[in-house]
Design a protein around this nucleic acid. Structure first.
Lengths: 262, 262
DNA sequence: CTTTTTAGTTCCAAATAATGGAACTGTGTT
DNA sequence: AACACAGTTCCATTATTTGGAACTAAAAAG
């Protein structure tokens, strides 16, 4: 879905590419399945899988001869989540917002042109959005994604747009760069981005960027609901609470010296 | 704390070692700090950090010149957590147990000789244990750890014991292999392991292994509390509920063909 | 303001590790 | 028993990693 950056990072880059490959299957996968999806020769792929398994980045089921993602990733990711994501910083603010709003709340950051959810609060168990912590979604068709894109520097934006595949998830999904960009001015004017069922039918959201003092955008927060429960107009009423939360987060991120993305 | 397995896995292994190194700092870290902790020459370490940053496994803060863990790990770990951990499998069972017991519940698996928490339910916010999802703890001084060790095959156990550093966290922590092993027979006889303030003063727990039909242990569940709220005797009363939950999980894991660790 | 120290970055020939075609092994199938 | 197929090992060739040293930029000392 996402157009991969074709950087040359030697052996390490290739190995990590294989992690992405295994991850894409979302289930235990056989050697031959991976081989058919990979450009590497048999022996090369085999050796990579051995190394990664050995290292705990993958796990191998001997009985079924299948590879899946390894638990070492869970350990390493905990560290990332704690020390390099907005999640720890935002914990209390999201608690407050959650209580105040009573709808599903997402905290997202950009990762390689995609939206990465680093926290999620689900007030109602009656509906599930696709998002969970650690999950990714396309940027071009989500509230959180558009809220971030609209505030990016031209260079960052250019890089991010190149990574968008503009997959048409629903009838209202932006289908190309121009259509998407045309929305940005409105977003900057109002300070919020709406997801008008662009990713999932029946799911709408309002999202706002988290901005550092220097103007750089580091992430975004969204309030999501279903069309059966609320209209876009209803979401508008959450705007003050949302903006107050994102303002607080922006200040916290600045104070805590959260890295400004270039 | 953990004795690293000194396997030679070429460039990829070395790169991943550096991820562990950065992770160990638990905060953004400068090049020179890493250099002093690493056996690599300056230029080599420098190149590794570049590659890993480039790949999103680390993130680099240009202003402060510090490295932290990268968000790509969070994305990859989501996949691991969903498809290769007991967490998805155990979700409902833990929900039930949580309601039934009203104490903190942990779901753990082994990762490189350490206990890795793959889910945690905190019924009371009044006390915090060190455990969170993705966090690791030593095996030799935790209920979840001992419950797993006691049921391991001799070969697995030997490997795991070699990785124990026997750090004395409290006065009751097992200080050597023999002391630890001497407890295993009791654990197997009763089916549960107790943490008698061996990891954190004031924190006790009862834990039980999750066993596949073929007898292999894949993880464990614990119920933890504080000494101010309960005694070890009180924990004993949770035993039936705990064992019923782990039995259910063992059956589920067998049915769903959860990989048997060798 | 100049010198010195320290931290981070680049370079390149030598050393080492990755590569992949082909041969091999083991399991299941006709 | 012969075959097909998935997975594994081998090893000479090729390409990448390696790290000492030189370099640059920024900070501290004089």
């Amino acid at each position: 879905m996402i157009i991969q950056s074709e950087k040359k990072d030697g052996t390490v880059g290739k190995a990590l590419e294989i992690l992405d490959l295994v991850s894409a299957f979302e289930r235990p996968v056989r050697f031959s399945e991976l081989l058919s999806q990979s450009s590497h020769p048999k022996a090369t792929l085999y050796r990579f899988l051995q190394t990664l398994t050995n290292q705990g980045m993958l796990s191998y089921d001997e009985d079924r001869q299948t590879y899946s993602m390894g638990l070492r990733l869970v350990r390493l990711a905990h560290s990332a989540w704690q020390n390099a994501s907005l999640a720890s910083l935002a914990f209390e603010t999201l608690n407050v917002l959650e209580k105040q709003i009573g709808e599903t709340i997402h905290l997202a950051q950009m990762e390689n042109g995609q939206v990465l959810f680093v926290d999620k609060r689900r007030s109602s168990v009656l509906f599930e959005t696709l998002a969970q912590t650690g999950r990714v979604a396309p940027a071009h068709c989500t509230g959180v994604g558009k809220a971030i894109l609209a505030y990016m520097s031209p260079e960052r934006l250019e890089r991010a747009l190149k990574q968008q595949a503009f997959v048409p998830y629903t009838a209202s999904t932006h289908l190309n760069r121009e259509s998407l960009i045309s929305e940005f001015e409105d977003i900057r004017k109002s300070g919020v981005a709406f997801d008008r069922e662009e990713h999932e039918p029946g799911i709408i959201s309002i999202a706002a960027p988290i901005l550092l003092n220097n103007g750089r955008v580091v992430g975004s927060v969204s309030i999501a609901t279903t069309t059966t429960r609320h209209t876009l107009k209803d979401l508008e009423t959450f705007k003050p609470a949302l903006l107050s939360a994102t303002k607080e987060l922006g200040e916290a991120a600045t104070t805590w010296q959260f890295p400004s993305p270039k």
